[in-house]
């Protein structure tokens, strides 16, 4: 098993954190894993992305050219990365912010309202975790419970109040709309 993932969106939409949670969960399940961020001038409002590789074997190349799963949260990222998804690859598509378009080729596109869901939960920043919930459902790579454990481990004490709403977003994504 080798799963290559790209998470992309505006800086501030939590795509780096999303990748890190996935990477941490993969490590917890004794997988090999790499996480690479886009770095530099991509701050809030800009375009940010990270790539994650999960594998049962040692990861020779951490470089992701084509991915098996694309998390995409805004229009510029969709335009940039739609050609980077392998045939039959999964796209977790933030329909709240990306206009519906004809998919370029054979992709498993799941158009889901991540941002609207986050709004309805009262915390726009948890759109990423709603998408993660959908990923857990779509691909049986990581266990739901592992991700919950990662949440508890990485939430700093001064942000404990955000733990519940993150869990709710994950659950919503997992259960479906």
């Amino acid at each position: 098993m080798r799963e290559e993932i790209i998470c992309a969106g505006f800086g501030g939409q939590g795509v780096m954190l999303l990748g890190r949670v996935i990477a941490q969960a993969a490590l917890k399940e004794n997988r090999h894993v790499t996480w690479i961020p886009s770095y530099g001038a991509a701050m809030r409002g800009g375009c940010a992305f990270c790539t994650v590789v999960i594998s049962d074997r040692e990861i020779a190349s951490p470089y992701v050219d084509k991915c098996d799963t694309l998390f995409v949260f805004n229009q510029p990222s969709w335009d940039k990365f739609k050609a980077k998804v392998r045939k039959g690859g999964l796209v977790l598509f933030n329909s709240s912010l990306i206009k519906a378009q004809q998919p370029p080729r054979q992709l498993r596109i799941r158009k889901l309202p991540f941002t609207e869901t986050a709004f309805s939960l009262g915390e726009v920043r948890v759109a990423n975790m709603a998408a993660l919930g959908a990923f857990l459902k779509e691909k049986n790579i990581l266990k739901y419970k592992t991700v919950l454990d990662v949440f508890s481990e990485i939430t700093p004490r001064h942000k404990l109040h955000l733990l519940e709403v993150n869990k709710k977003a994950l659950e919503k994504g997992y259960r479906g709309w």
Binding site: V33, T34, W35, I36
Partner: peptide
């Protein structure tokens, strides 16, 4: 290189 510096691995 920049990738090695930025990359997270176990």
């Amino acid at each position: 290189d920049g990738m090695l510096g930025q990359m997270m691995e176990p």
